[in-house]
Amino acid sequence: MNEEEPPLSSYNFNFVGGPRNSYFFITLQQITYEIQFKPTPYLFGDDFVLADEIVELVIKVTNNPTGRTPSLDVLIAPTVAAIINDFYQKSSLTITIFICDTADRKHEARWRKFNRWYDHFAASDYIRIDDTYRDTREDLLYHFAVIAKNGNPYLREVGLAFLDFMADVKMNK
């Protein structure tokens, strides 16, 4: 941590659960965020050993009474990191994927945000693999990240499945 960073704190959050493993937190500006770990068992094929452990990380402002675009809030990154850590404590075999696309041209900002959240992890406990895919026909760029716990006994299978998937996506390029 450098000297300009605020004290290590985050927002209080609660786990609501449900089929998409929802969490909520409310900021000092009364903006409500929801984080979901949305099951995505089909990603690496039905026969993948941890198909039921694959989730997609989705983060969304669900209520913004300010009526303005939320400004940079330094407490959001540590809150997202704390929530991801909490979810991994419930299920250490979880494989989290994060994807951002260029459909609305805000992808680079979203990718930078995701990287800020990830930087707040105890990164040595996790392994992360990134890749990108450019769809030249539709002029879209996709950023991907896959995160798993270092202690996951299927790390090799996760890595190979992701590389295989990206190789399949990029075939014919």
Binding site: T40, N63, I97, Y142
Partner: peptide
């Protein structure tokens, strides 16, 4: 290999569509 490519592209597009749908539902369900 061609079937795998087509599957992977289908999954990719589905992932993105599902994410956009999930984001809309999050606001509605709130």
């Amino acid at each position: 290999p061609q079937e795998r490519h087509e599957r992977a592209i289908g999954v990719l597009k589905r992932l993105v569509a599902d994410k956009h749908q999930a984001e809309e539902e999050m606001v509605e369900n709130f």
